[in-house]
Amino acid sequence: MTLFHVLDILGIISFAISGSLVAMRKKLDPFGVFIIAFATSVGGGTLRDVLIGAKPVFWMKNTEVIFLIIASYFFAIIFRKKLKYLNKSLFLFDTIGLGLYTIMGTEIGLNYNFHPIVIISIATMSASFGGVIRDILCNEIPVIFRKEIYATACVFGSITFLILHHFNVNESIIYASTSFIIISIRLVAVRFHLSLPTFYTKK
């Protein structure tokens, strides 16, 4: 099993738990919780595969993904009472998933020899659009469209990956550095209430 495959598994698990936590907070029934968990896990990757023309999309040709989501879904339900601080747990799993999916999106973009701008775009969409689908289905304004720094962290993470890759840095160091950048940006932004400016026009 390669390091890339391990990161893929961790990303799926993180986003499945993240989706389950949001759905349970919204008091959805068990089926609704599973649908949100599934959509959060595969939403960004599905969009990525559709854009690059990969057929079938990744989870259709690898049933391991579906079983991982099911296992993560049951884990979130069984241990929901132990996850006492749901908002903190949600932030943790969502941020981990964000970092891991940015890495995968960037790696796939490099394998297709896309222009760096295209690679960064694919990585950002791959990492953040699962959360967009989750929030829309749960009737919330997606995090990516709010002031909170979210997609911006993916952009900086992907740039970090590309720079280190250009200088032929060891793969493990690239993965660790990219994850560290994304997680650090999210943590610092939340800790010090940093956000992007918004546009507001008086009526």
Score class of each variant (00 low, 15 high):
residue 1 M to T: 14
residue 5 H to N: 11
residue 8 D to G: 09
residue 11 G to E: 05
residue 12 I to N: 02
residue 13 I to S: 08
residue 15 F to N: 05
residue 15 F to V: 13
residue 15 F to L: 11
residue 17 I to T: 11
residue 28 L to T: 13
residue 28 L to Y: 12
residue 31 F to R: 05
residue 31 F to L: 15
residue 33 V to I: 15
residue 34 F to D: 07
residue 35 I to A: 02
residue 38 F to Q: 02
residue 38 F to I: 00
residue 47 L to D: 05
residue 57 V to W: 05
residue 59 W to T: 09
residue 63 T to L: 14
residue 63 T to Y: 13
residue 64 E to C: 03
residue 64 E to Q: 13
residue 70 I to D: 08
residue 72 S to R: 11
residue 73 Y to N: 13
residue 74 F to Y: 12
residue 76 A to P: 03
residue 80 R to N: 14
residue 84 K to C: 11
residue 86 L to I: 15
residue 89 S to P: 05
residue 104 M to I: 15
residue 119 I to H: 02
residue 120 I to V: 14
residue 120 I to Q: 00
residue 123 A to F: 03
residue 123 A to V: 04
residue 125 M to K: 01
residue 128 S to T: 14
residue 130 G to H: 04
residue 133 I to S: 02
residue 136 I to Y: 03
residue 138 C to S: 13
residue 139 N to S: 12
residue 142 P to Y: 04
residue 145 F to P: 00
residue 147 K to G: 07
residue 148 E to S: 03
residue 148 E to H: 01
residue 153 A to L: 07
residue 156 F to R: 11
residue 166 H to C: 04
residue 167 F to D: 08
residue 169 V to G: 08
residue 170 N to H: 13
residue 170 N to R: 11
residue 172 S to F: 09
residue 177 S to A: 15
residue 178 T to P: 13
residue 179 S to G: 13
residue 182 I to R: 05
residue 183 I to N: 03
residue 189 A to D: 09
residue 194 L to H: 08
residue 197 P to S: 09
residue 202 K to N: 10
